[in-house]
Each structure stands twice: as structure tokens, then as C-alpha cells.
Design a protein around this nucleic acid. Structure first.
Length: 355
DNA sequence: TAAACGTGGCC
DNA sequence: TGGCCAAGTTT
């Protein structure tokens, strides 16, 4: 089992910026724990394609965990903008600072010790321990759950099946090359043992796969039904000074989009747009609607825009000068608001005859 | 245990 | 086009 999987991995390992190839590992090279940690946190519930550029930018800007620990919060949050699950970025900084302050800038080498760090749960602790430190830790992500559920024809729906799948996965973990084994299981799930239309005919584990023998591979793992998403409504005030400064506010540390920049506006509720006071005096015009879907609800945001007086002190938020403001520093829903407001203002300028 | 927590791609 | 899905963690 393990032999067939590792042989497959040696020939098919995906190339990624944070990964050391099986050949280079055989030559004695070890992955940098910092890069393994950073990539694993970014990859939580996030696709490889989405992570690539973020990983590059982070490691270019902060090459070591000490560099990251010394970074300003706002810089890190801005660099994470668009990647989602912003608690990861907050915990990333906390973790880097613990490593720098309490561990001499070196990552603990065991899954048990890693597990106590902010933002590192069972999956990430096992992944770092196995990949960076060669500990035979068992990595269980969505890919592994799917591979194991099929391999052993586990029909219990997730998340109830989690414990059983973890035990089965642990039985498969070898003492030799645990890091490559972990990555092989995940690569297999990502490229062969896929959620839909699994490529069983070219799978290195097909002869051992119980679900394939039963003809139910594509139906596993079973999942409990998900609750329906409600729709919430709100207002976003996209205000700009004539010199281009944007009126933004830093959102509270906890909760949705915590610690990120956003446009002022009232609470979001399931009843139609609750009226909210504008953050500054001005001629606020409704410029349209932004629709956005979060993990657990749909959002319809009424966007109001205005050109604001330079002298006016805002009642909420603060002006960010044009040279310090990049729309890419905003979480996606707030960037959508920005884009809509800018398009509306450009249309007004154009309709005015332009210059 | 269940709910909160983002986003983009795919079919 | 809307739900599913992606290398989960925290509370």
C-alpha cells in the first residue's frame, strides 16, 4: 500500500513553491519549517491555485519567521486581503511572535508542541511535523478523508465519520518518509481520487480500494446535509475626498472580516436594509448593489457614494490617503463596493462632459 | 457538537 | 446559476 503510493508520488509529485521534491529530499535537503507552516496555513480551506501568488508575496516580503513577527499588523492584513478566513492572518502573526519571542525563532519539531500554537490545529500540526521534521504524524485533510473513506468503504457521513477516518489514516502512516506519504495522500486526493469522476483506472491504490470494488467510490464520502444560507442586507458608504483619499474603518479584531479595512455602514440584518447614519456629511447617492456570498449567509449591500469635503472630520472611520490606498488591500466584498463606487463616479464624470 | 469564518472555480 | 468544494481552526 505505502510502497505503491510512494512510488506513484515519486513519479507524480506536484511542483509547488513551498515543496521540496522527493529527489531533493533523498539528497538530504529539508523543507524550511517556516515555509511549510506558512503554506499550510494559507492552504487551509483554500485551493493551491489561490495560494501560489500570496505565498510568493509573503516570502518575498518576509523571508523568515522573525521578519514576519516584526511586521506591522496592518501590512500583514493588507497582504492577506482577498485570501479569506482572516482569522488565519491574525493567528499567523500571533504564532510568528510566539515563535520569535519564546522559541528563539525556531519552530517546535513535534506535532504535540506545534498544536499549542495559535492557528495550528490537528491538521497543520501533523503536516508541519511530518513534512518539515520527518515525524510519522498522520495528516487528515479533506483529501485524506475522501481517499480513506473510499479505500475502506466507510459509508458513515461526515463529520460523524471523522474519528473513524482518522484512525484508518493513522494505520496507513509509515515510519519511513512520513512527509512524502502525507503529501502523496493529498496529491492523490487532489488529482486522482477527486470528489467527482475519480480516475480509478489510473489510481495506484485501485486494487486495494473497497469502494471501487463495490462500485460506490464516487458516492463517498457521504456528507450530512448543510443548513440553508439566509440572506442579510446592509448599507456600505463609499466616501472619497476630492484628493482621492478613501474613508475607511478598521473592523473589530473578532468576527467577520475581523481586523480588515472596510467601508463604514450599519449592521447587516435579515430584514431589509436597516437605515444607517452616513460616516460624514455629504451628498450621498445610491450607486447600486453588491451581492456577495459568505460561508454561512448571502449578503446584499446597498452602496452609497459621495465626494466629501476635505475639511469635514468623519463621524466614523478615517481617511486613507490615495497614495496609501490600494483596493487590493480590502477584503473582496469591500473591494467590490469600491469598484462599483468608482465605476459610478467615473460615469458621472463622463456624463458631465469629461475633460 | 455546532456554528462562525472567505473566496474563487467548477459543473 | 446556485450549490459544492478546497491542504481547517476556534469558540
Amino acid at each position: 500500500m505505502s510502497v505503491a503510493l510512494l512510488r506513484w508520488y515519486d513519479a507524480n509529485a506536484r511542483v509547488m513553491p513551498w515543496r521540496v521534491s522527493p529527489e531533493d529530499i533523498r539528497l538530504g535537503q529539508r523543507p524550511d519549517p517556516y515555509r511549510v507552516w506558512l503554506s499550510e496555513v494559507m492552504l487551509q480551506q483554500t485551493t493551491v491555485a489561490a495560494v501560489r501568488d500570496y505565498f510568493r508575496r509573503f516570502t518575498d516580503r518576509w523571508p523568515t519567521v522573525r521578519d514576519l513577527a516584526a511586521a506591522e499588523d496592518a501590512k500583514v492584513m493588507a497582504e492577506w486581503a482577498g485570501l479569506g478566513y482572516y482569522a488565519r492572518a491574525r493567528n499567523l502573526l500571533k504564532c510568528a511572535r510566539v515563535i520569535a519571542a519564546d522559541h528563539g525563532g525556531r519552530f517546535p519539531a513535534t506535532a504535540e508542541a506545534l498544536l499549542s500554537l495559535p492557528g495550528i490545529g490537528p491538521y497543520t500540526a501533523a503536516a508541519i511535523a511530518a513534512i518539515a521534521f520527518d515525524e510519522p504524524a498522520t495528516v487528515v485533510d479533506g483529501n485524506v478523508e475522501r481517499v480513506v473513506a473510499r479505500l475502506f468503504a466507510v459509508t458513515t457521513p461526515l463529520p460523524a465519520a471523522k474519528r473513524e477516518l482518522t484512525e484508518r489514516a493513522a494505520d496507513l502512516t509509515p515510519m519511513a518518509r512520513p512527509g512524502d506519504h502525507a503529501q502523496a495522500m493529498m496529491d492523490l486526493g487532489a488529482t486522482i481520487c477527486t470528489p467527482r469522476n475519480p480516475a480509478c483506472s489510473i489510481c495506484p491504490l485501485s486494487s486495494a480500494c473497497r469502494a471501487r470494488a463495490l462500485g460506490i467510490a464516487a458516492d463517498l464520502p457521504a456528507k450530512s446535509p448543510k443548513p440553508v444560507k439566509p440572506t442579510r442586507h446592509g448599507i456600505a458608504f463609499a466616501g472619497f475626498r476630492r484628493d482621492g483619499a478613501a474613508l475607511l474603518e478598521r473592523r473589530p479584531e473578532r468576527g467577520l472580516l475581523g481586523g480588515m479595512l472596510g467601508w463604514p455602514g450599519g449592521a447587516w440584518s435579515e430584514r431589509a436594509p436597516a437605515e444607517a447614519p452616513p460616516p460624514a456629511a455629504g451628498d450621498w447617492r445610491r450607486v447600486g448593489e453588491v451581492r456577495h456570498t459568505f460561508t454561512h449567509f448571502h449578503l446584499v449591500l446597498e452602496v452609497r457614494s459621495a465626494l466629501l469635503d476635505t475639511a469635514a472630520a468623519p463621524a466614523a472611520g478615517h481617511f486613507v490617503a490615495a497614495e496609501h490606498f490600494r483596493p487590493a488591500d480590502l477584503p473582496t466584498v469591500m473591494r467590490k463596493v469600491h469598484d462599483l463606487a468608482q465605476a459610478a463616479m467615473a460615469a458621472v464624470e463622463g456624463g458631465r462632459g469629461g475633460d
